[in-house]
Design a protein around this nucleic acid. Structure first.
Lengths: 350, 350
DNA sequence: CTGTTAGCGCGTTCAG
DNA sequence: CTGAACGCGCTAACAG
């Protein structure tokens, strides 16, 4: 393994008997270069196996053509799909994407923000771990454009791309109400996160419009993960009277609840109804049967990236944008009209 | 939004009435700096909101503290787990990880390799899209250390971390043989990929040791994905006589086969036996029941990264390493001894 | 169409 | 313990 250093632009220049800048123009397809000169340069590049140094390029040109995508849970298929939307859109425009995963931790988020800003990314797409405005301001202080994705924050001066969580929850709960359900439990995410709270708000609005109230006990908050969904579901199953329907605040909470219901030997929808925010991945061992409100995950990533790129290009409207995307109600087979008798038949589980 | 440029190390130096290099020493904790001086510098950093420029740092120090991880399918949970092993190990050592997804395409792989080498990553972990030595040589030409993961390549002068695919397949097929299965179909990945071929080799060895041969028709190759598994399984189901057992070459092929078997209304293991390479993700709607050979996914990533880091540190043995990790047979409930009658009872499906 | 000059922000080298 | 000079590899700004 010989230790000869990688060839630089000057080595290529020398070999092709031109100046460094000419090589630069050939590599970047910028400016005018004569046919014959270009040929010589390209030959020299091939012979030397020259690979341009992006670091130096970015240092000089003050632009890395890289975006940071900072999200909360890369193991969640919803986020992988969003991520793909971001990546595809960015790549198409010649940008690379640097990914950071915060696990909903503000500390990790801060760490990643520092890292990517040090790396001089041209822009940031952030799924904030809290609704605090501080991280946003920190990014903006570095003159770096930022788009907040999925969640609202306590800050008006920033671009946001999200879905209508309140509306989606409202639809789901109205469906349950129309089937006669009256005691409906909500298993939501962390309080302090807008999606989590908006979904509860949609639930409350649906009940209020129907002239109904609800026990405080049936509204539960936890984490946006399976374990939490599992635990919250058991909590619900132990209530007296037991709710006749569950509304879970995201896909993972829904999965956890599903497991709890199976352990409790409750059939869906015969014994209990279940609806959820977020569609589930197709599972090839069973037919899809969960009634859900689906989010346009890929498109969310796409729109957020487009907005960010237009800011970078200076083609975005001056005013900060808030893009709210619609959700889609998909009715399948996990709910059922409540039977007259069932209303009083509140069995204790466990 | 005022357009003042981000503060540089010199701005901090001026504000603290020291030289730039002193600031550098404070930031990097290198060299001696007096207590009092350090205090002034830290104050200046905080007041200015100074964030060091990694680009310039790396350009100067000729090291980015970044590794590239190039793999073939990020949507496969096996690879996400491997990736986590890489990421955790790298982060612990102060390295960041740049991820590239090739979808088993040599073209995409080449594109990513170019990108990350331009970005001056300190090392590459590659899951090669083919067994060609060329990409390896290309990386090594840039004086960049590389570890090949999961697959063998036509190149001896490179570090490799993989599992014993032949051995794992051998165990699985021996289990089937011991239960009396004689006509066993293999649904494997692309030919030309060592894992795919090694798993077929293990199958052949098990049969040969039992003094048995097999029809060429029951050995099928396709892609390492669900769609391909689904199609290959249907192909098997239409054979006469129909194989009494299936061995699928990875988790996704297994999932696709599962779907085909369900569509064909075949019960497992009553109507047909199924074993697979790779364990499946826990699915909360059904108990795990598939008999598999599991790979230590996380540890594979970990070992590969450790090896790469030790190369960077210069602490690795001079000779190239080939680390072959063991697989684990997990017997569950997807196979069953073949019944005497069944052997002749080769029903056509469809 | 091509070249010269300068300097991006930082850290190594060597001298105080 | 601190600093001055220099250059990493590349391109912006200006010549010609």
């Amino acid at each position: 393994m010989s230790e000869k250093p990688s060839p630089t632009i000057r080595d290529v220049a020398k070999r092709a008997s031109v100046s460094a800048i000419t090589v630069s123009r050939v590599v970047n397809n910028s400016g005018y270069v004569g046919q014959e000169t270009r040929g010589r340069v390209e030959a020299a590049i091939a012979e030397l196996g020259y690979v341009p140094n992006t670091l130096a390029r970015s240092l000089r040109s003050r632009s890395t053509n890289a975006l940071a995508l900072i999200l909360t849970d890369i193991t969640n298929p919803f986020w992988t799909t969003v991520g793909r939307g971001v990546e595809d859109t960015a790549n198409e425009a010649g940008f690379t994407v640097i990914l950071g995963n915060t696990d909903e931790s503000e500390t990790k988020q801060e760490k990643y923000l520092h890292t990517v800003l040090q790396q001089q990314v041209d822009g940031v797409i952030l799924v904030p771990a809290s609704s605090s405005a501080e991280p946003i301001l920190f990014i903006q202080e570095q003159n770096t454009p930022v788009v907040v994705m999925d969640r609202r924050v306590d800050c008006d001066d920033v671009d946001v791309v999200r879905v209508d969580s309140t509306g989606g929850a409202h639809q789901l709960v109205r469906l349950l109400l129309s089937q006669g359900h009256r005691r409906i439990a909500v298993l939501s995410g962390p309080s302090g996160i807008s999606t989590s709270e908006d979904r509860i708000a949609g639930y409350r609005r649906a009940l209020a419009e129907a002239g109904l109230g609800h026990d405080a006990e049936v509204v539960i908050t936890g984490g946006f993960n399976q374990q939490s969904g599992y635990e919250m579901a058991w909590q619900v199953l132990n209530m007296t009277p037991r709710p006749s329907a569950l509304f879970t605040g995201n896909n993972f909470i829904g999965l956890g609840a599903l497991r709890a219901l199976r352990e409790a030997k409750l059939r869906i929808p015969e014994d209990i109804s279940l609806v959820s925010f977020d569609d589930q991945l197709p599972d090839f061992s069973v037919e899809p049967f969960l009634t859900v409100v689906a989010q346009p995950a890929y498109e969310i990533g796409q729109r957020a990236t487009e907005l960010l790129l237009s800011r970078l290009a200076g083609t975005a409207p001056a005013a900060y944008q808030e893009i709210v995307m619609p959700t889609e109600l998909i009715v399948r087979r996990s709910t059922r009209p409540v039977q007259g008798a069932e209303l009083k038949d509140a069995i204790m589980v466990h």
